[in-house]
Design a protein around this nucleic acid. Structure first.
Lengths: 137, 137
DNA sequence: CTGTATCCTTAGGGATACTG
DNA sequence: CAGTATCCCTAAGGATACAG
């Protein structure tokens, strides 16, 4: 059952549903790290510049797993314990994240979003989506 | 300065920026109500099925105003005190909200999203965006 | 190092009372 | 009715210690 139980969903509205799963300040940063920064290890996420706390990170990884957005597997090289990656459901978040990036880049005067990437998304949204999905598959 | 002060932004990443402003379980529900449900009065928002508390609503309206996403004006008919509406910056959230709807509708088995609307968005995203923007202007 | 668990403070937010 | 303010509790989450 990769979705909230009856008593933790506030309504059947899709916006509300999405917010029930992802509506906080940290969860989507983990998704962002995987989608756009090729991160896959626990320490990768920990070292992101926003400075997520280790308990928060562990909690979010577990919740993302429970909701079927992310999974992990043992690291064969054993440099790390696990390799985290998105499921199809998680990869489906890419368009939403891209819109968040466009909105943030447009309205944040001190954004650090790379101009080239923003232009690429504006010019060829579907292409960028396909490319990133391919890379992560 | 319609954006977070230096000490409340976690990084210059556009995703992080967007989450700093909108990353909680309630704020985007108000935006949704305006964009898709033609709500404009305090009581409209209060009566949404998710059941936002009055103090939370007041707080979010104020924050959305501080960040330049929403404004209000006196209601000339005085049925209500104020009429709330989105700024251009707020209307710019529409594409992101649409992606949230698509994702929620796809992955929530008990979604209440109208099939026709979902199809319309998939088929003619830009058209839907233009139409809704026009209506709210 | 990777990941887990504990402690403890603050902030989010529900219930409800209050004002115009 | 529209909107504000208070009370109070729970949960989010920062710091940090601990285990493999």
């Amino acid at each position: 059952m990769p979705h909230p139980a009856k008593d933790c969903r506030r309504s059947d509205c899709p916006v509300s549903f999405t917010l029930d799963l992802l509506g906080d300040k940290w969860t989507l940063l983990v998704v962002r790290d995987i989608l756009f920064k090729d991160k896959k290890f626990y320490g990768d996420f920990l070292s992101s510049e926003e400075g997520i706390a280790t308990n928060i990170l562990a909690d979010r990884l577990e919740k993302l797993d429970q909701t079927g957005i992310l999974t992990w597997e043992k690291d064969p090289n054993h440099g790390s314990k696990y390799i985290y990656h998105l499921t199809e459901k998680g990869l489906d978040l890419l368009p939403m994240l891209l819109e968040m990036i466009l909105w943030g880049a447009k309205h944040d005067p001190q954004t650090a979003a790379p101009r080239k990437f923003i232009q690429a998304v504006k010019k060829n949204r579907e292409g960028v989506i396909r490319e990133i999905r391919e890379k992560l598959r």
